[in-house]
């Protein structure tokens, strides 16, 4: 591995920021990452979330890969957890990720065009 020095700089900067947050504070984004999700395009979706969160410095938002919830036909499935609220999005693509970040995570209003209720009741 090269440029470990850059990593040290990142560490030093992170050590300066006092973080009191636990693992489950803030918003959690779960991306279905089983065979069905991966073949439907979950990896670029997850990658887009990571890039957008890094770019916008949304430090209380975490993204985690998870298994399959059994609705393989409408993958990629993304769940957004905020407190007790759970929003399930399906057929998510990179364009949808941008909308979920700006309209839901930042704006606070779920993106109804992709919620699971449009496909399954």
């Amino acid at each position: 591995m090269k440029s470990l020095d850059d990593l040290k700089k990142i560490r030093e900067a992170a050590q300066q920021k006092v973080s009191m947050r636990g693992k489950n504070d803030g918003t959690r984004i779960l991306v279905g990452m089983a065979t069905c999700g991966i073949s439907a395009g979950a990896r670029p979706v997850m990658n887009k979330f990571v890039e957008e969160i890094a770019k916008r410095e949304l430090n209380t938002v975490t993204v985690t890969p998870v298994g399959c919830i059994g609705e393989c036909a409408i993958e990629p499935i993304v769940e957004v957890l905020q407190g007790d609220d759970r929003t399930t999005y399906c057929k998510v693509d990179e364009k949808a990720v941008e909308r979920i970040i700006t309209e839901h995570i930042i704006g606070g209003k779920p993106v109804t065009d992709y919620v699971i209720g449009k496909y399954r009741l």
């Binding site: 990593l7 990142i10 900067a13 969160i53 410095e57 975490t62």
Partner: peptide, 9 residues
């Protein structure tokens, strides 16, 4: 490791 700057690195 899940610090986003670390992930980008």
């Amino acid at each position: 490791l899940n610090n986003y700057e670390v992930i980008m690195w």
